[in-house]
Amino acid sequence: MKLLHGIFRQLGLAGILAAACSTAAAQSAETMQALAAKAAQGEPVVWYESSPENQIGEVLKAFNQRYPDVRVKYVRMVGGNELASRAIQEVQARGHTADLLTGGPDHLWQLNERGLVRDLSQDQLGLPPALLPVNYAVPTTASVYVLLWNTRKVTDEQAPKSWDAVINEKWTGHVGSWVRAAAFAQLASVWGEDKARTSLENFVKLKPYLFKSTFPLAQGVASGEVDVAIGFYHSAQPVLDAGAPVKFRMLDPTPMHTISSSVSKSARNPSGATLLMLWLATPEGAKAYEQATSRGNPLVSSTKTYEMLQGVQTAEWPFADVAKLADLNEQYNAILAKSRPAM
């Protein structure tokens, strides 16, 4: 039964991806031209996102090649929580915030609950359903979980090939994790809550080293501080690019977090914000974004992430279940927080 469920899920995802890709490439060129003309008349588009400035600089260079008259001011918000909190504070105090807000489903959901983001379903944007999973957000990229290992400490053969192999007592004190248990919360969408919880409890028994962010986690693998770790594909790229003794593989199922963009209701250049958001979801925009940040949109066929996830069962709660995801994150983070010190 579970096998069938998995096959259906994979087929379903493939169908969604195919449908998204076939329409995304042609997503209303006329609409975008009209938006560009309007956006060029307005103020610079203020964009809140979490990627480093130099990376977004590359993205905006590509955007401005296509739309040279639309100006964008980028402000980095490290961590999605800051994005939501800052946007709410700004609206409460001065009536407006950034034009375009890019974050996780929980962050955008918070903003939507407060009525701070636009209802995009009324805008006739011509987006396929996969690129408009809820009426206020367009998926623009994703963070995909991978297993990382240090090749000087662990051979390719020894490196876990399944989640059961990760949760093996031989990795006790040698495994690393992000300080959030978000991977297990996403796994619950495929495994069910009980199995995900039990797996997390067993993982906690391995006394994992916890890292503030998945980037230092990848560095921890590279330095040999931990032998194996559950990290993100994109945050492993800096050490891989630097030639560190690190390899990665995706486990089955592969948890991921889709990151989306929303247009602020208080946007002072809504056309510009909508244009930038739509462009990020085009093959050109998605490719430019992935090349700059290593995070790609699994719904757009021009990305490596799309190719990487072909035939892979992903684990992610649908956007509509964001409240459920938030609840699980809280519960699972508390379980991870109960892991005893490794030494």
Partner: peptide
Amino acid sequence: MPVNIFVLSSRILYLATDSAGGMS
């Protein structure tokens, strides 16, 4: 934090940036 030893201040940082639910 790597070995789950939290003091109040590191907990505050965690609550600001990593708390579940999408808000600090």
